[in-house]
């Protein structure tokens, strides 16, 4: 019988997941073709000073509404090597659960002091640090009253590693009914930021979110 790869799961109550998830199993990649499935990114955009502080639009402008928080962590590959000089992009909703993005039609208010986008490059140890606003949750399925719990989106790209993921908050409202959280199952804890105190800096609290990403030689587990 032909060997097949994983069958992807459809996120419950997620219409887009229902429409876009392949119904057939994934296919096994022949060993001779594996390298061609390992993209290598050399992206290094020009980044302006302060692009990792989302809490104000410029140093002397007012703070956005809500609690300013720090999100920081280290990005390692699964062998424990730091991912250096990788591009980390984050985006999140404002205090009211509204994205400034053109396509967000949610009725919550925009905050004129919050755009909600940040990016930076990791340092020599693979570390990153952002200041942002503690995001609100938002109503994703008004027809069945299903909300998305608060979360911060991240995209990471560097060398042969890249990942798109989200950081969640411990015991937050609506965590349990979130489709992707349900698909993650017991591994959900890997995507929760660990809260820490921030006594000496101008934010309410911090969340440590260490990330493990597939490394250069670890794409294929054998």
């Amino acid at each position: 019988m032909e060997k097949l790869g994983r069958k992807l799961r459809i996120g419950p109550t997620d219409n887009t997941s229902y429409e876009r998830t392949p119904r057939e199993n994934l296919r096994i990649i022949p060993p001779a073709a594996r390298d061609s499935f390992l993209p290598y990114s050399r992206v290094q955009p020009g980044i302006r000073l302060g692009e990792n502080d989302l809490t104000r639009l410029a140093p002397d402008l007012p703070r956005a509404d809500g609690d300013a928080i720090e999100m920081s962590g280290q990005i390692l590959d699964d062998t424990g090597q730091p991912l250096r000089h990788a591009l980390v992009e984050i985006w999140n909703a404002n205090k009211y659960g509204k994205y400034a993005h053109d396509l967000d039609g949610y009725s919550a208010p925009l905050d004129p002091n919050f755009i909600g986008l940040g990016r930076m490059l990791t340092d020599e140890e693979g570390r990153y640090k952002f200041w942002t606003i503690d995001p609100g949750c938002y109503l994703a399925r008004p027809d069945i009253n299903r909300w998305r719990p608060k979360h911060i989106h991240l995209s990471i790209r560097g060398g042969a590693s890249r990942l798109i993921t989200q950081m969640y908050f411990k015991d937050a409202e609506h965590n349990d009914t979130d489709p992707m959280r349900i698909v993650m199952g017991d591994d959900f804890h890997l995507n929760i930021g660990k809260q820490y105190e921030t006594p000496n800096i101008d934010v309410e609290r911090g969340y440590k979110f260490d990330i493990v990403i597939r490394g250069k030689d670890s794409t294929f587990f054998e």
């Binding site: 887009t16 062998t79 992009e89 993005h101 396509l103 493990v212």
Partner: peptide, 18 residues
């Protein structure tokens, strides 16, 4: 090997300006 952070959906709002 360290356990991998779960991948997640990109959602509908990836920054257009990038």
């Amino acid at each position: 090997r360290l356990p991998l952070t779960n991948e997640d959906t990109v959602g509908p709002y990836y920054p257009i300006c990038y």
